[in-house]
Computed example of a mutant assay.
Amino acid sequence: MSLPQCLIAIVLAGTSLVTYAKGGHTSTATADKPGVTLPAKNHSSPFASMRGGHVGLRVADYKAAKQWYVEKLDFRVVKEWPFNGQHLAYIAPATDDRFFIELLGDGERPTPKPTFKDLNASAQVAGYHHLCLDVADVDKALATLRKRGVKVVAEPFLVPDIKRRLAFIEDPWGNVIELAEEVK
């Protein structure tokens, strides 16, 4: 069984939500994303128990990818295991136990991702584009990442509709990572 190159999913467990009523309509906004209002939950759905699982990131060099995420982004290795001739691991940000990336590495060499000259060019390809990591201060995060030799794909910019300042970085294999700071 071969695994797709860009299999991405996110582990999100226990996200705090705030429910409020507005004009007779109950709505939910995430505590972490105050600029986003969610529609009412559909408890009658046959998929009502569905939750986010994890993001799987196919990498050609398991050890190098694990090392990069640990050394550059301070991720922690949660669990490692072999599967089908590959090495797999759950990794998590320094203090977040709700978000995992699953590294799927080694085994048959995957097809490399295309490279792009900038963020806008990368948005022209259908499918997975990026994962987002919330940070307290985008500028401080970028300063640290630059010192660690991380490639910055897009400098910080404001998106008022979601009350966020965003910047984008890239890992050595072309995977785009958004850094998001809440603007109050």
Rank of each mutant, 00 (worst) to 15 (best):
A31N: 08
A31E: 09
A31R: 10
D32W: 04
K33L: 05
K33H: 07
P34A: 05
P34G: 04
G35A: 06
G35V: 02
G35S: 07
G35E: 02
T37Y: 04
T37D: 01
T37F: 00
T37Q: 01
L38W: 01
L38V: 01
P39Q: 05
P39N: 06
P39I: 00
P39M: 04
A40M: 04
A40R: 03
K41P: 02
K41Q: 05
K41R: 10
N42G: 05
N42Y: 05
H43E: 04
H43F: 07
S44V: 00
S44G: 07
P46C: 10
P46V: 09
F47R: 06
F47P: 03
F47K: 06
F47T: 06
A48H: 11
S49C: 07
M50C: 09
M50P: 01
R51S: 12
R51L: 09
G52T: 04
V55T: 14
V55C: 14
V55Q: 08
G56F: 00
L57P: 01
L57R: 02
L57G: 04
L57I: 14
V59F: 07
D61Y: 09
Y62M: 10
Y62N: 06
K63A: 15
A64V: 10
A64Y: 09
K66G: 06
K66F: 09
K66H: 11
Q67W: 09
W68F: 15
W68S: 05
Y69T: 00
Y69P: 00
Y69H: 08
V70A: 14
V70K: 13
E71Q: 15
E71S: 14
K72L: 11
D74H: 15
D74T: 15
D74Q: 15
D74L: 15
D74R: 15
F75N: 02
V77C: 13
K79D: 08
K79H: 13
K79T: 07
E80Y: 07
W81M: 12
P82V: 09
N84E: 15
N84D: 15
N84W: 14
G85L: 12
G85K: 13
Q86M: 12
Q86W: 01
H87Q: 13
H87I: 00
A89T: 03
A89H: 04
A89Q: 02
Y90H: 14
I91W: 03
P93A: 11
A94P: 01
A94G: 07
A94C: 12
